[in-house]
Nucleic acid binder design. Structure first.
Length: 805
RNA sequence: GCCCGAGUGGCGGAACUGGUAUACGCGCACGACUUAAAAUCGUGUCUCGCAAGGGAUGUGGGUUCGAUUCCCACCUCGGGCACCA
């Protein structure tokens, strides 16, 4: 046996696994299925960085264990390849986005393979592949058919630098998500998806899934469900003001009413106010401000009174002034609020600034008062409809045709996919139209309905489109008739375990749940929720605890680590560096610990092989497994190790089994390290025990485990060496023996007043009284109890005795 | 401002339902092997103290025989949301 050479071993097994297709999922298996999923990456030009493997290896460990547990595992990978960085690179270099993407995915694939991740590469998908986005477009047409995709003139967040319309969530705080430029509001016809129609179900059904509490919470906050009352205020003009409040109980404390500057009926109030010029000036001012200016932290509230217009409090008939102020949002509730300065900090701030009355009134029952004033209880959501248009090239074309006569006409399903044409210039236009608009050959088409002159929609879909349903395509990635067959969907979905980053818990997760529910309503998928269980890995920060970034020059390339230390070492290190769900700081110096661990495993392997071959002799092949149990005759001498080590092995098997399921990879590895240290000390290590250890190591370090496994030979086969043995990675996960784990002696700590003073060993079935007695007689304990009155003695089974004096 | 999460050796971290605080790893020191070095192995490594013993899990209090763990208040860091009525 040669010394450990990770380069040879890893390459050899990666190729063999590929050839033997041992990680391919089987659509027709009788085994129980397990669908494990990681977020497919955006294949950037920089290649994989060490953060990616954290998620991939974590789920790989789980997938590998599940295979060994007897599951038919689907663990797929693909590319979420539409997106701005590629397009921007295309603009800069003039290369085709398609070509750039091909290059990047090749790099990513090579890197992922070099880590020995057990992905089923036969199901690889790419969102930019027309065979894939055909179905993204098809699903869009279903939304259109059901009236959930619609075009609306709306104010969008416009980035003047990227020249692109952004969704609210991409322009948080009025700053472009991509380049940091302050966004401005711009009116534009946009495609929208009515996610708000699903708001309530998206909130409620979180009860059905196994997500971490913090993930559920952030989804709930994003959806922002709140229950309250809608109450109408009559006014001095012929137009009521409807307000939304969660505090109808404070209705008697209302001292004024406020309209948002963008309130739909603002015009009617404006023209009848005495200070029309002043008010319209104010509204104009507000609209000219950027989002940042409007929401700046220290910004003082502004507003203007609609003079000579008043509203009537329906609770007591009082007349109160009406104001326009930009602290009221048009997009939430009714765009108007009743102000109760006594109970609301914002109203109070405003009232104090403009000398509006602040009054204290008794509170009443919210529901009763709502009913009494003719209002109704309603539920509102913060969630807005999803702006689904992008004025960009590198996205799925929205499959719609604008006909001069017929209006918006969906592209017939038989004409899908609407393929992206090749263009010369990928730069978006200053008018805000997609570069597609300038390709007249592509744009000008016949109307599918009337055959008349028509133009294609030139907007494309946002990044989130392709990733909203990709997990469905994996179950049947080559299907030409449907996005996936009913049969495969029924077998594989839902995803059993989905791991990804915290940064995707609000948007991607919510969007894909929305699409899934929509498809469920169309009876196209069998389950209400797409993901049964979701976990989140922590980020990997650069040395010093800062984010890895090119500008800081602290990005670690996994290729380097694989080259120097090997994939197994990188895998073990990343799983060992800290709790999986928490942020971890990269430390190149610590990798050596993982490498030493693997080398130790290798050395023990060498030792075991040496003893085995000396025992079996060179003439006869070993036939240990073939011998009947308990047979003594002619048996070759077998190497035995101490019962203590076997006990430790079984404890470790149990610990590792449980830790993998709970993603406590760090403590699993720690337990294996302890076992390995003990195994190395052991004089004669038995082949069986060592092989069991290799099996529990295999999910973490599959290459080295496989190599030694094959060098040792399969004990159930008469052959010591040879290529025909089964892979360790699909062998049966070892079982532990509870009897061996149970100690016949237990260590009991003795405390005096809660302080440890000694310990005794007792039989595991020893009765309480005897243990207590023995504890009191313990020498180093007596020292503390002598001459003191013993108040009571507490015994915790199998743990300790506490003597209280 | 609001909502989460976290504060344990020189460092990454462990302690699963309240029961030996600091497992495992990195680093460091010393020793063995070696002509030497590397690698490897062994020993030690929270702190004060010669010792007996005492003190430490962000700070202060509480509950308990017993608290890193539960409760209250505060401080610091990380993340998310942010005028959502």
């Amino acid at each position: 046996m040669k010394s450990y050479d990770h380069k040879k071993i890893e390459k050899k097994w990666q190729d063999l696994w590929d050839k033997k297709k041992i990680y391919q999922a089987n659509d027709k298996s009788k085994k129980p299925k397990f669908y494990s999923l990681v977020e497919f990456p955006y294949p950037s030009g920089d290649g994989l960085h060490v953060g990616h493997p954290r998620s991939y290896v974590g789920m790989d460990v789980i997938s590998r264990k599940k295979r060994m547990d007897g599951y038919n595992v689907l663990y797929p990978m693909g590319w979420d390849a539409f997106g701005l960085p590629t397009e921007n690179f295309a603009i800069k270099t003039g290369k085709q986005p398609k070509v750039i993407t091909k290059k990047n995915t090749d790099t990513f694939r090579r890197q992922a393979k070099s880590l020995g991740i057990s992905f089923d590469w036969s199901r690889e998908i790419n969102t930019t592949d027309p065979n894939y986005y055909k179905w993204t477009q098809w699903i869009f047409l279903q939304f259109l058919k059901k009236g959930l995709a619609y075009k609306a003139k709306s104010e969008i967040n416009w980035c003047p630098k990227d020249k692109i319309g952004l969704a609210n969530e991409e322009a948080v705080g009025g700053i472009c998500d991509r380049c940091g430029t302050p966004t401005i509001k711009k009116e534009k016809e946009q495609w929208m998806l009515a996610i708000t129609k699903y708001a309530d179900r998206l909130d409620k059904d979180l009860d059905l899934v196994d997500y971490p509490e913090r993930v559920k919470l952030s989804q709930r906050n994003w959806i922002g469900k709140s229950e309250g009352s809608e109450i109408e205020f009559k006014t001095s003009i012929n137009r009521n003001i409807k307000v939304f409040t969660t505090r109808a109980d404070t209705l008697f404390g209302v001292t004024y009413v406020v309209l948002a500057p963008e309130h739909p009926n603002i015009g009617e109030f404006l023209v009848q106010s005495k200070n029309m010029a002043e008010v319209s000036q104010y509204i104009r001012e507000v609209k000219s401000r950027t989002e940042i200016e409007r929401t700046a932290e220290d910004k003082e509230k502004t507003g203007v009174e609609l003079k000579e217009i008043y509203a009537i409090n329906p609770a007591n008939g009082e007349e109160v002034p009406v104001w326009v102020a930009d602290y009221v949002l048009a997009g939430y509730g009714t765009g108007a609020v009743m102000a109760v300065p006594q109970h609301d900090a914002r109203d109070k701030e405003f009232a104090e600034k403009y000398n509006l009355p602040i009054i204290d009134r008794p509170l009443v029952n919210a529901e009763e008062i709502t009913q009494k004033v003719g209002g109704k209880m309603v539920t509102k959501f913060k969630l807005r409809d999803w702006v689904f248009s992008r004025q960009r090239y590198w996205g799925e074309p929205i499959p719609v045709i604008n006909c001069e006569k017929c209006g918006l006409v969906p592209v017939p399903e038989k004409d899908l996919p609407v393929k992206l044409p090749e263009v010369k210039n990928y730069k978006p236009t200053d008018t805000g139209e997609s570069p597609l608009a300038s390709i007249s050959k592509w744009v000008n088409v016949k109307c599918p309905k009337c055959g008349g002159k028509a133009k294609r929609e030139t907007d494309t879909m946002p990044n989130w489109a392709g990733s909203s349903w990709y997990y469905l395509r994996y179950v049947d990635p080559k299907n030409k008739k449907e996005f996936a067959s009913k049969k495969n969907l029924k077998y594989w979905t839902p995803v059993d375990w989905y791991n990804g980053g915290m940064e995707h818990t609000t948007l991607h997760l919510l969007y894909s749940r929305f699409w899934h529910k929509f498809l469920y309503d169309l009876k196209l998928v069998p389950t209400v929720e797409p993901y049964k269980k979701r976990t989140s890995h922590g980020m990997i920060l650069g040395e010093g605890g800062v984010k890895m970034s090119k500008s800081l020059g602290n990005v670690v390339n996994p290729d380097e680590i694989v080259k120097i230390y090997g994939a197994d070492t990188l895998r073990v290190y990343e799983m060992f560096m800290g709790p999986f769900e928490e942020t971890a700081v990269w430390n190149t110096d610590s990798i050596i610990g993982a490498r030493r661990f693997i080398e130790k495993v290798w050395r023990i392997g060498e030792k075991v092989i040496k003893t085995e071959s000396s025992l079996s002799g060179s003439l006869s092949p070993r036939a240990r497994g073939a011998l009947p149990l308990g047979s003594t005759a002619c048996e070759t001498p077998r190497q035995e190790n101490s019962v203590l080590l076997t006990k430790l092995l079984h404890k470790t098997i149990k610990k590792v089994s449980g830790d993998i399921e709970a993603m406590r990879f760090n403590t699993a590895i720690s337990a294996m390290m302890i076992l390995v240290t003990e195994m190395e000390k052991e004089q004669g290590l038995s082949l069986e025990d060592y092989k069991k250890f290799l099996q529990i190591l295999a999910p973490f370090a599959p290459h080295v485990a496989e190599e030694i496994w094959h060098l040792l030979g399969d004990p159930t086969s008469p052959r010591l060496r040879g290529a025909k043995e089964k892979s360790i990675n699909i062998s049966d996960w070892p079982e532990w023996d509870e009897k061996l784990i149970k100690e016949d002696e237990m260590k009991i700590m003795i405390q005096v007043n809660g302080k440890v003073r000694g310990e005794i060993m007792v039989g595991s079935n020893e009765n309480e009284e005897k243990i207590k007695k023995e504890a009191q007689e313990h020498l180093s304990v007596k020292k503390f109890t002598e001459g003191k009155e013993i108040k009571k003695i507490i015994y915790v089974k199998g743990r300790l005795v506490n003597i209280v004096i």
